[in-house]
Every structure is written in C-alpha cells, then in structure tokens.
C-alpha cells in the first residue's frame, strides 16, 4: 500500500459510525496511575490492536471499556450511549442497565474464563438462554453453528478441563459471538497458550476480521497486529503514545519509545 492509499482507507474507516468511544479516561491503582487521560474511538468493522510493554495500561484500558474496571475519571460510550456508573460522579447507571449494555460488548479473556462446571455447548448457550432469554432450541442452534465455525463441533459435550488451551480459547470466542455483540474485546487472547496453539486462535480471529467484526485486541502478537489490524494503538506509561495504521507503525514509528519497544521486541524474537 502506498501512503496515499493508506490515508484513503483511514478516511473511509473514519466515516463509519463509532461503536465504542473512550473519552478522557483515567485510572489509578492506589497512588499508581495506570491510565492518564485516554481518548480513543473505535469505528465499526475496525480491528484495533493495543500494543505496549507490560504495565503500560493496555489491559486496564480494555477492562474499562466494559466497566469490569471502574475508571476514576472520563467516560465510555457504546454507540453514543454512556456506560457505567461512578460513585460520587455525575454518571449513575443501575446494575441492570449496565448488564444490558455489557451484553452488547463481547469479551475474550487471557485465561479463557470458561465456566468449568458446564460443557462446551452449555458454556456457549448459557448467557443467550439466561440473559438474552432466547429459547433453548434457538440458542442451541446458534451455539452449534458457532462451534462448527471455530472447528469444535466434535467437542460440544466435553468439559473445558478436557480441552487444550487453543480449543478453550476458540470456545471462548464462540461464547462471545453467541451474544451477537457489536464489538469484541480480546484481552491477550494468546498469551497463555503454548506457541504451537497460537495459530489456531489467530486464524479464527482473522476470520472475524474478514467478516467485518469490530474488535479491540490487546496482544503481544506483532505479526497478527501487522497483518490484520486496521489500526495500532501503542501505549506506554498510561498514555497513548502513538496511533496509526500498522504499516506506518511497524515500518516508520513516529516516536522514540515505539522504536525502542519494537527493537526490544525484535531482539527477543531473534
């Protein structure tokens, strides 16, 4: 892609509606600030990869996006609607409303977080049946087709403990998709996998990108970010240091900190 084309496609993305917007977000753990005044817009069908050294605040930012972590300041908007509640702050949202908004945001966790007492199929059907109140038949039909899609139709009745890490994460993705979310948050989805299992999960994620799913991915998989992301957001010390198309970020990082990060990363992988 030439620079011109990149700019063109960026423009096209920016004309799409904003699904998730983070505005002026800050968060401290005790005296330790982890997010400092973060603002970010995620457009429809975008795949945004959050990169950065560990402790840079990227996972905390992701967890603030569905209010698993309460920010100290700032707001998160889902399709224009503010999300969450803050004690003492201006925004108050009842648990029920928050829950309803969370159903529209999927999440995939680093350690899978499958519910161990349910079979694979039950894991995928659980929230559609009990939260979205779908009928069991409806939910089962969706779950079966999603499990087929992630290549696990044969494991429907297994329990999570019997699956490999890669299989667990594919189930977790199917579980998120079953809610028909408007955006899916991925929190280091391949970090706890053995190297040989990373590929199968990334392949499923790549399919989602192709189908136009909106995704925010915290990852250390530089190859994935480079090939698949529509935008890379590089964080360090609780700030967004750099944000742009992957080609630009990997070929010509604008900041010294990003250069250092990429160099260290390259050194570790050689």
């Amino acid at each position: 892609m030439t620079d011109d084309q990149t700019t063109m496609s960026q423009l096209a993305v920016q004309q799409r509606p904003v699904i998730l917007e983070v505005s002026g977000l800050s968060k401290s753990f005790g005296a330790n600030p982890v997010l400092r005044d973060i603002s970010l817009k995620i457009h429809k069908a975008e795949t945004v990869c959050l990169l950065g050294p560990s402790g840079s605040g990227k996972s905390t930012l992701l967890r603030c996006m569905n209010w698993l972590e309460q920010p100290d300041g700032g707001t998160v908007f889902l399709a224009g609607q503010p999300l969450g509640a803050r004690p003492g702050g201006g925004l108050r949202m009842r648990d029920k409303e928050l829950a309803a908004m969370r159903t529209r945001i999927g999440m995939v966790f680093q350690h899978f977080a499958l519910w161990p007492h349910m079979s694979v199929l039950q894991n995928v059907m659980e929230a559609p049946v009990h939260v979205l109140k779908q009928t069991k038949d409806e939910a089962r039909a969706t779950a079966v087709s999603l499990l087929q899609r992630v290549g696990l139709a044969g494991k429907m009745d297994s329990f999570p403990a019997r699956l490999s890490g890669g299989q667990k994460q594919r189930v977790a993705i199917a579980r998120a998709l079953a809610m028909k979310p408007e955006v899916i948050l991925f929190d280091e989805p391949t970090s706890s996998l053995d190297p040989e299992l990373v590929g199968e999960v990334l392949a499923v994620m790549q399919d989602l990108v192709r189908e136009g799913m909106t995704m925010v991915v915290v990852t250390h998989e530089m190859g994935f970010a480079r090939d698949v992301a529509s935008r890379v957001v590089f964080m360090d010390g609780g700030h967004i240091v750099e944000s742009g198309p992957p080609d630009q970020f990997f070929e010509a990082p604008q900041t010294e900190r990003a250069r250092q990060f990429l160099m260290r990363y390259a050194a570790r992988n050689n």
């Binding site: 999440m107 680093q110 977080a113 499958l114 929230a127 009990h130 948050l185």
Partner: peptide, 14 residues
C-alpha cells in the same frame, strides 16, 4: 476465580 466472575459480568448476568 476472578476471571470467571468477570466473564459472567461481561455477559451481562445479574
């Protein structure tokens, strides 16, 4: 496990 609880939250369970 906190992450299983988080998962339940993120699926909008009350």
């Amino acid at each position: 496990p906190q992450d299983q609880y988080d998962a339940a939250l993120s699926f909008g369970m009350n």
